[in-house]
Amino acid sequence: MSNISAKETSSTRAARSRVGFLGVGWIGRHRMQAIVDTDTVDVVAIADASPEMAQEAAKLASGAVLVSSLDEMLAAGVDGVVIATPSAMHAEQSIKVLDAGAAVFCQKPLGRTAAEVTSVVEAARRADRLLDVDLSYRFTEGMQEIRKLVQSEELGRLYAVDLVFHNAYGPDKDWFYDPLRAGGGCVMDLGVHLVDLALWALDFPAVETVSGSLFAGGQPLADETKQVEDYAVATIALKSGTVIRLTCSWRLHAGADAVISATFYGTQGGAALRNVNGSFYDFTAERYRGTASDTLTAPPDAWGGRAAADWARRLAQGEGFNPEAEKLVDVARVLDGIYGRAPEQIQQAPGRTAA
């Protein structure tokens, strides 16, 4: 694939990436729009278990063909595949795409355990293909600014990080509540973003210990093979001495649609990303000095599709395996620690592997 300079227009490009979309519910269509808007790819194939969803997505990509399976999509000759299917399918489908010689952009989580995530990263390395996951909160203007403060040590020595994500509604698809198909509940759905934000901002430091407490319906989770957690508290102790505290939930009586924050405390100051008025999309970032605060960023900020657009541009530039993908395993290991389980405790989900 030839490199594309920023000065080239769509009419002068020698080649464009051919991309397929596997799973086109709301999130899949939103990411499709973001990728189409980069004007670096052609959407050539769409697959979804729902014909109605597939038809709706096709409106965003004239010329794309509707296919019935991942195999049929790969046979169409794609350079990359965007995967937005139930979590249990992510690892298997990603490996299949990578082994076929195409790149992958996958919804989180990439796998239900660190073992599954490791297998995907190894497949990407073998194939020398681009692999990325939709960890979209990294791309908020607020977190970009906070990470700069952390990395430059302007906040001094970081010793505490508090992370919160409460979703007052919870997912609307039944597979999220199936331990086998989802791999977990609110930690797998929301906690993955929080863990990634903390480790990413701190440049993926060494983790010493991880512990977690899981609840379902207001009671300690008794059997994670039969139900998933809807509330979780976790503590992640780093070898540097920094402590990360995490809380996430579905359907909590939190007084707002959503409560989302990532707060970093250092010896010379603090900084926080917080959602505004219960919004899932509007965030403000502030820097703290004692009792004073300064605004770093404020809405509006159209961040939702930036991770997908970034992947599309890098794909068009011919980027292969990026060792940064190995950090996905670090995040997955922390999630394993919160659940207190070995990777082999989740078995292969039965049923279909197509979208």
Rank of each mutant, 00 (worst) to 15 (best):
S2M: 07
N3M: 14
I4H: 05
K7N: 12
E8L: 10
T9Y: 15
S10P: 14
R13V: 11
S17K: 14
F21D: 03
L22S: 09
V24M: 09
G25N: 12
I27G: 02
G28S: 09
R29Q: 12
R29T: 07
R31I: 02
M32H: 06
A34D: 06
A34T: 06
V36D: 01
V41T: 04
V43N: 03
V43T: 08
V43G: 02
V44D: 03
I46Y: 13
A49P: 06
E56A: 12
A57R: 13
A58P: 15
L60R: 15
A61M: 06
S62E: 11
S69M: 04
M73H: 08
L74H: 06
L74W: 04
A75W: 01
G77C: 01
V78N: 01
G80I: 07
I83N: 04
A84F: 14
S87G: 01
E92V: 14
E92D: 09
K96N: 04
D99W: 00
Q107F: 03
K108V: 01
K108E: 08
A114D: 05
V120L: 10
A123W: 10
R125V: 05
D128G: 04
L130S: 15
V133T: 10
D134A: 14
T140Y: 09
M143A: 00
I146Y: 10
V150R: 13
S152L: 12
G156M: 02
R157D: 14
D162M: 03
K173A: 08
Y177E: 00
D178F: 08
G183F: 14
G184E: 05
C186M: 09
V187M: 15
V187S: 13
L190K: 15
L190R: 15
L190F: 09
H193L: 06
L199E: 14
D203V: 01
F204I: 00
P205N: 07
P205C: 04
E208P: 03
T209G: 13
S211L: 00
G212Q: 04
Q219D: 07
E224R: 14
K226R: 12
Q227M: 06
V228M: 00
S240V: 00
G241C: 06
T242Q: 08
V243W: 00
R245F: 03
L246M: 13
C248T: 12
W250N: 09
R251G: 08
R251K: 15
A254Y: 05
A256R: 14
V259S: 06
T263P: 01
F264H: 14
G269K: 02
A272M: 12
Y281C: 01
T284H: 03
Y288G: 04
G290W: 02
A292Y: 04
D294P: 07
P300M: 02
G304D: 12
A307G: 14
D310C: 11
R313K: 15
R314V: 10
L315S: 14
G318A: 09
F321Q: 08
P323C: 07
K327Y: 07
A332L: 06
A332S: 12
G337I: 00
R341G: 03
P343I: 05
E344V: 10
Q345T: 15
I346Y: 01
I346R: 02
A349D: 05
A349L: 03
P350T: 02
